[in-house]
Every structure is written in structure tokens, then in C-alpha cells.
């Protein structure tokens, strides 16, 4: 069953008088439980594609169906709703609320989903336990390491049980060892049946995925299934 079905989408930005064709003609299908890496140099349109996939932006032309529903004509509020329920974002800079503890950061999407307080507390704590932060529930971001912060962000992405996890350079702000740990976590999340879309410009990271889509100048240059690199299980960081 495919979750994402994109056909011939384009995206044109107006910068002053000039038109920038960020996406020229992109078609892409992503199925349930896929692990896709989107790669490309800067200016290739990968950010634009990611915003499109994340329903943060709508295409200038073309068709985008999310679970069979057309996204292209949705209003702002409908887009907000679909982002809330179906998509879990993980950002390079974590984007946590600096003055709130881990639990509040994780329960944030549940607030917007209208979940009652007691239930969302419980779910947020469970999500934090799942990413191995059982002892860090009431720590604020500045009391956490980079890897721990990204785990909080991942817990936040998972807490709504979304259809896809959209990770934009999730290891970009981490050292390589911590980055590797985070990739191990993604691996596990994928094993549990989640669909992951990873945006990166590092081959090293992209190799974790089962499929690599390469973009160049707003076009898909290649789309291939790859041999997955061996993922070491790091027991210390993931709760059993």
C-alpha cells in the first residue's frame, strides 16, 4: 500500500522578478514501511521536496496524494491537521522548546490533537521510555546532550503514531558516534513497521536506508534500492 504518491509536481518560487524552478517534474511513490533517503547537493530541490512531503507547502502544479487523499488543494487548517496526525518531523536543529521539559516537548503534538491531559502525559512518557530517556523525563533541553535532545525530538515525532517519519539531516548537528546511535534508533523504529524518509547530503548516513532517491536541479536523477549497511545494535541507548 503506498502512502505517498507524487505525480509530475513542480514548484516555482518568485524571487524578485526571477522565477526559481525548485522542482521541475518529480514523480515519486513511497510505500508503507519503506526507509527512503533523499539526497542531493544544496539547491537540488531536496528541501523543497521535503517541505512538500511534510505538507508544509503545496506544489505549484502536479498531484500529491497522501494515503489516497489529494493534498494539493488543502486549506491551511487541513494541512495542519494532516501534519499533526500523519507526519512526525525530526529536524537537524532538534527544535525543542527551550524552557519546557522533555515530557512537555513530547506531548506538544498531542495538545494540538486535542488529547486530554492524563492520556497525553502517559503517551509522552511512554514515547520517551521507548527512545531510552526514562531517566530524563523532566530535564530541559539545556540539561541534555545533543544525542538526548534528538531522542526527545524523535519521541515527539513518534508520539502521535504518524504514517511517516520525516527526518531532515537528523545527524547534522551531532558528532559521528552520537549520529550513529541516532541512526541505530531510526533502524529500530523502521523495524517496528514505521515508514521513514531521511533527507541528507551525506552518503554515509544515506547508506542506512533501503532506497536512495537522488535529486539534481529539481529533477530525480536516480531512484534505486540499495544494499543496506550493517547497523550495529547499541544496547545502551535503546530501551528493551
Amino acid at each position: 500500500m503506498n502512502i505517498i504518491n507524487i505525480e509530475h509536481i513542480t514548484k516555482i518560487y518568485k524571487v524578485g522578478l526571477e522565477e526559481v524552478h525548485a522542482l521541475r517534474d518529480v514523480s515519486l511513490r513511497i510505500d508503507k514501511n519503506e526507509y527512503v533517503a533523499i539526497m542531493g547537493p544544496s539547491g537540488s530541490g531536496k528541501s523543497t521536496l521535503m517541505n512538500m512531503l511534510g505538507c508544509l507547502d503545496t506544489p505549484t502544479s502536479g498531484k500529491y496524494e497522501f494515503k489516497g487523499v489529494s493534498v494539493s488543494e488543502m486549506t491551511d487548517n487541513e494541512l495542519a491537521k494532516i501534519r499533526n496526525k500523519e507526519i512526525g518531523f525530526v529536524f537537524q536543529t532538534f527544535n525543542l522548546l527551550a524552557r519546557s521539559d522533555a515530557v512537555h516537548n513530547v506531548e506538544l503534538p498531542l495538545i494540538y490533537a486535542g488529547i486530554p491531559t492524563a492520556e497525553r502525559r502517559e503517551r509522552a512518557i511512554q514515547a520517551l521510555i521507548d527512545v531510552g530517556l526514562k531517566d530524563r523525563l523532566h530535564h530541559k533541553p539545556n540539561e541534555l546532550s545533543g544525542g538526548q535532545r534528538q531522542r526527545v525530538a524523535i519521541a515527539r515525532a513518534l508520539v502521535t503514531n504518524p504514517s511517516i517519519i520525516l527526518a531532515d539531516e537528523p545527524t547534522g548537528n551531532l558528532d559521528s558516534k552520537t549520529g550513529e546511535e541516532i541512526m541505530g534508533l531510526f533502524h529500530e523504529i523502521h523495524e517496528k513497521g514505521n515508514t521513514i524518509i531521511l533527507v541528507t547530503h551525506e552518503e554515509y548516513i544515506a547508506e542506512h536506508a533501503a532506497r536512495i532517491v537522488r535529486l539534481k536541479d529539481g529533477l530525480i536523477e536516480s531512484d534505486e534500492r540499495v544494499e543496506r549497511r550493517y547497523i550495529p545494535k547499541i544496547k545502551t541507548t535503546v530501551a528493551q
Binding site: 491551511d76 527544535n95 503534538p109
Partner: peptide
Amino acid sequence: IGLRKAIGAKR
């Protein structure tokens, strides 16, 4: 605000 909107806050 960007984050809140990304994770589902309406206008």
C-alpha cells in the same frame, strides 16, 4: 511558531 505549526498547530 514554525515548529508548533509543523507539528499541527492551526492558525
